[in-house]
Design a protein around this nucleic acid. Structure first.
Lengths: 201, 201
DNA sequence: CACCCTATCCTGACACTGACAAGATAGGTT
DNA sequence: AACCTATCTTGTCAGTGTCAGGATAGGGTG
């Protein structure tokens, strides 16, 4: 890897300097504006100010770029959950907050959410992508086992969190759209609590 | 609307006779084989044995065909649920069976499932599509109210059913993939039961 | 029966897209 | 100084969605 950082503000050098990162940025913008189904590699290249074939060297084909975006997106997904869990009162609250973070991410970056969970374009056999996905899954398992839960509870919490997030991102769940944010959070908390292993007090 | 049914088995007449239905069939095959993201209008026309511009007259553009496919898909979706619910022992079992039907449809027709719930290509403002979606939603509401449940219970059952189905259709939930069908159904039943309004015995 | 009207389908064209090949450029290396 | 390699460009091709205009055929009207 060569260092072109010194010229990152130059006019239009033949070598970009940090094209890989620039393409990831442009790709995320493209994703946000046109969605997974409207994603165009040439448009991404145009955003980054390079020729239409420039991305090939860094990502191979369109699938390669989308795979990289998905891996990066998975990390941001987990970051959103972590941020929400940080102020948790206890383990139970932490699990509920994870579900709320799941929804927050889906609403903030719906296209990235779809890319990760509902697209066939990224290569989900990619090691980086597998690693990022496994980290998120293992985190979820940790949340549930801390509550004394097992595999069944993992499925319950994940499925419900994912269902709320996916349906909300697609504007399918009008019952939640109508509510105020506070009211919405109260309802979702109640739903998520049902999925957790019950306290044996 | 003219009637060309008598020539449906002819060689290659200028007028197809039932092109609209043929395009819907071809579109569903295309969807099943190449997914929403690989869907090509010209390929669908080729499947139906007509020119690349023939679909335009019946569906306008690609979105129009996908919208029609989504509306038709929604009906089949509901049919799958209905079939499962038919043998229900009671109202509670009926709601659980609806969730299992949700998953059955997602696994049997993953591309159609994605088209309906996770795509931006169909026109979800289309009256037929809205009608088909509302029918399914109202049916769900009926299931829950029969159990004495309210809006919160509708959200819980829908989100969890959808989460299981969507994650399974995308092969994300390895915890369920490993199990035998019987074992899988047992687990899902247990998860769905948590979402239903609790019996006040 | 002759004529037109309309629905249906086709051919041709244009811009856009992803992918590939071959060439240009420039920093690093010896 | 000469080569090497990574990086980026230009040019090209097949495939795609969409539009315009033309061809076909059946039904209706006089």
């Amino acid at each position: 890897m060569q260092n072109y950082a010194w010229r990152m503000k130059d006019e239009k050098p033949y070598h970009h300097g940090d094209l890989r990162a620039a393409l990831l940025d442009a790709g995320e913008s493209e994703l946000a504006e046109r969605g997974v189904e409207g994603f165009s590699l040439r448009s991404v290249a145009k955003r980054a100010g390079v020729s239409h074939a420039a991305p090939a060297h860094h990502f191979g084909d369109t699938g390669g770029l989308l795979t990289a975006l998905a891996a990066e997106g998975f990390i941001r997904f987990q970051d959103t959950l972590d941020a929400r869990e940080r102020d948790a009162a206890d383990d139970r609250d932490r699990a509920v907050r994870a579900g709320l973070g799941y929804l927050e991410f889906a609403l903030a970056r719906p296209a990235l959410f779809r890319l990760i969970f509902s697209s066939a374009r990224p290569d989900f056999a990619s090691p980086e992508l597998i690693a990022a996905a496994n980290r998120a899954y293992q985190h979820l398992v940790g949340l549930v086992t801390a509550l004394g839960g097992g595999e069944l509870d993992v499925i319950a919490l994940w499925a419900t969190s994912h269902g709320i997030a996916d349906l909300s991102a697609g504007h399918k769940m009008r019952a939640l759209q109508g509510k105020s944010p506070a009211e919405r959070e109260t309802m979702i908390r109640a739903v998520l609590l049902r999925c957790l292993p019950q306290a044996e007090s």
